[in-house]
């Protein structure tokens, strides 16, 4: 295995584009090293992105959003008060990934590029409308994070392409987001179901909403019907009931070692309700 430490994303993309065998990018490494250890992935070229300037930074964008470097670990994300104030759901999604130790290394981009339908940080990013800045051998492009996952273990990134940053939009006023997941234990598990809700309010009334589910389909799924169920409401019980039904109806899960189809479908609705309540409270400036 060749270990590369490029100092620019263009150089990283160039190495990846020229590589013949199995290639992996290394940011936090908490997925790649596990796969290497299990013998599932034996890279010929491993490209460490951490020597690239700025990858460990969280910067405000001119528009009022945030630009998050690809090597920012969960622990740094969680410690960034201003980012957390804007996007608590995104931050808590990342913070749910693994243990304290994992938080010292794991990154949003790694969680996204691992391609797991159960990735905890991805529903929150999609619900927030986050964008991914991509550097490729032929230049750059910016795409919605929602367009990156392609199925279990797969992304839409082309050979040689590397995500060079994540972009969160401006929070704006009266907005709130939240992410909840269900796991059998209290920590250390992969989500059996995950749900992010991002919404904006006018007073008590929800004016915009995005509901995104994880671990219930081959990729994270946005559920427009669930969003519609709460827009125009003050999150009364009827609206929450409709939200839960819409969330459950959008599930296309599998039975596996982590949960059953029936369980995932049922609990998706439960989490949608609970996450919506938290996001609603946050949007109204209540402590939640």
């Amino acid at each position: 295995m060749r270990y590369h430490t490029p100092t620019t994303f263009a150089e990283a993309a160039g190495i990846a584009a020229a590589a013949q065998g199995v290639t992996r990018f290394l940011a936090g490494g908490t997925d790649v090293l596990v796969q290497m250890r299990a013998g599932m992935v034996l890279p010929d070229d491993l490209i460490d992105l951490k020597k690239i300037d700025g990858v460990d930074r969280i910067d405000p964008t001119p528009e009022g959003g945030w630009r998050i470097g690809v090597a920012v670990p969960g622990i740094a994300l969680g410690a960034h008060e201003a980012l957390r104030a804007d996007w608590p759901g995104v931050v808590e999604g990342m913070e749910l990934v693994g243990s304290t130790q994992i938080q010292g290394r794991a990154t949003l981009v790694g969680n996204l590029c691992n391609g797991s339908p159960a990735a905890d940080s991805v529903p929150g990013l999609v619900a927030a409308g986050a964008m991914a800045e991509i550097t490729g051998p032929d230049g750059g492009r910016v795409v919605p994070v929602a367009d990156i996952p392609a199925g279990p273990g797969r992304t839409t990134l082309q050979p040689g392409e590397v995500i060079s940053a994540l972009l969160l939009p401006p929070r704006g006023t009266a907005g709130g987001d939240a992410y909840l997941r269900f796991i059998p234990r209290t920590e250390m598990d992969i989500a059996v179901v995950g749900c992010a809700v991002n919404l904006r309010c006018d007073g008590d009334t929800v004016t915009e909403a995005s509901v995104v589910l994880g671990a219930v389909a081959p990729t994270v799924v946005s559920v427009p019907a669930a969003s519609a169920a709460i827009i125009g409401t003050a999150l009364d019980d009827t609206a929450l009931g409709t939200l839960a039904e819409a969330a459950s109806a959008a599930c296309r899960p599998i039975d596996d070692k982590r949960g059953t189809i029936a369980f995932r479908t049922e609990v998706a609705g439960v989490l949608a309700k609970r996450a919506a309540r938290i996001a609603h409270a946050r949007a109204k400036g209540e402590n939640a």
């Binding site: 270990y3 596990v34 460490d48 951490k50 130790q101 290394r105």
Partner: peptide, 16 residues
């Protein structure tokens, strides 16, 4: 701890 950050040393390469 690496650079004062708690990590699993099994998930860090020696070269890092």
């Amino acid at each position: 701890e690496m650079e004062g950050v708690l990590v699993c040393s099994c998930l860090v390469l020696g070269v890092e």
